[in-house]
Computed example of a mutant assay.
Amino acid sequence: MAACTSQHALISVKPRCASASFSSDRRAGNVRFVSTTSCCPSSRKLGLVCASNSQSSVIEPAKLPSSPESGSNPKKSSEAALILIRHGESLWNEKNLFTGCVDVPLTPKGVNEAIEAGKRICNIPVDVIYTSSLIRAQMTAMLAMMQHRRKKVPIIVHKESERAHQWSQVYSEETKKQSIPVITAWQLNERMYGELQGLNKQETADLFGKEQVHEWRRSYDIPPPNGESLEMCAERAVSYFKEQIIPQLVSGKHVMIAAHGNSLRSIIMHLDKLTSQEVISLELSTGIPMLYIFKEGKFIRRGSPAGPSEAGVYAYTKSLAKYRQKLDGMDQ
């Protein structure tokens, strides 16, 4: 699997063995569809080339897994957008502390990152938002949606108790139409760093040795003391994604997920079919949105939206272009 790089580099993974034939070249914005040949000579698939200033990379779209109960593929749906955003810089990011599941807010820089992320997705439809249960992800989601041109109000759905659910009900149908539900889930929380939480990363490396700390942080299946490995984090995050979020996309809903480096790496590992070795080299920048298109049972990575003033992502699909035209008409 090769990395898809855009004007704002978001992720980096080591490529798998693949070769590409450029005999078929259908341009769509800064994305090219090409016929690709994998290491197996008999296989030939349609992939994506995502252009950047320095290089182009081929991506094979990730198919949805078959339902184990039915034994058949999920039904095809209309095109839907999936936006992934890692939260903006937190106070403990700034202090270089292991944060994990400790609930700390954003720094002023993190607030600005969330606002800029919102500007980059302000022309992309959003019907439902998922965040972790941690405030830094929730702040990022709220601040980002405040920049959206549709001007819908994000409202957190409270289901922690029957009373909380009843007391937070909205009884105006018109108000509901102008709102976006925000669903919080602990399964999307950051990886739990156990006894490292709150410790300074450099001081921890000095105490335990750089190699040991690197193993705790970057290995796939080795957890820190009394903490989670990336594998353990992926198990809960991907399970939740399959059970709760994929059905929304199948129904045609446009979804935004504001979460954390490791929970989002886990989801991207699933979407892009990365190996355990590839995912440990995957880096996500704070406050940079990543866009996928879900269509006909497949996820296709489209890179990072460049911004509302540039053609960028909006030229990738007809439906996104039409949505932006609709927003332009509402502003007139």
Rank of each mutant, 00 (worst) to 15 (best):
L48K: 04
A258M: 06
I267E: 02
F241M: 02
C101A: 07
P154A: 10
I180T: 12
G100L: 01
A234Y: 05
D328H: 07
H87L: 09
I59G: 00
M139W: 03
V238W: 06
C17P: 01
I245E: 06
L291I: 04
K63I: 10
A28G: 00
E228K: 06
S77H: 14
S56Y: 11
A321F: 04
L82F: 09
T317W: 01
A28I: 14
L91C: 13
W186R: 14
L134D: 03
S133N: 12
F208S: 02
Y292N: 04
L10C: 10
S179T: 14
A80C: 05
S78N: 13
K322F: 13
P247W: 08
F208G: 01
G252Q: 04
A117I: 01
K95C: 03
K75Q: 11
I246T: 06
S132F: 02
S56W: 09
R301K: 12
M232K: 09
S23I: 02
K201W: 07
S56F: 11
V34F: 02
S77M: 13
R301M: 10
S276Y: 07
H87Q: 11
E113C: 09
S229M: 10
L327Y: 10
V255F: 02
F33L: 13
K298V: 06
I121N: 04
E79N: 08
C233M: 05
S54E: 13
S6Q: 07
L327F: 11
D25T: 14
Y130Q: 09
A3V: 14
V102D: 00
S21A: 11
M232W: 00
A258Y: 05
Y240Q: 11
G71P: 06
E283I: 14
T131R: 05
L106R: 02
P308A: 12
N53T: 11
A258K: 04
T275L: 07
R120H: 03
L82W: 06
G118N: 05
C4K: 10
S70G: 00
T107F: 02
P305E: 08
E211T: 15
P68I: 14
A144Q: 04
E160K: 05
V250S: 05
E278A: 12
K159R: 15
S172A: 07
A234T: 08
E69I: 12
H214C: 04
L10I: 11
Q244N: 15
P289S: 11
I300C: 12
H254A: 00
K109I: 09
K14I: 14
I268M: 13
N93V: 03
S281N: 14
Q244S: 15
S229Y: 10
S43T: 14
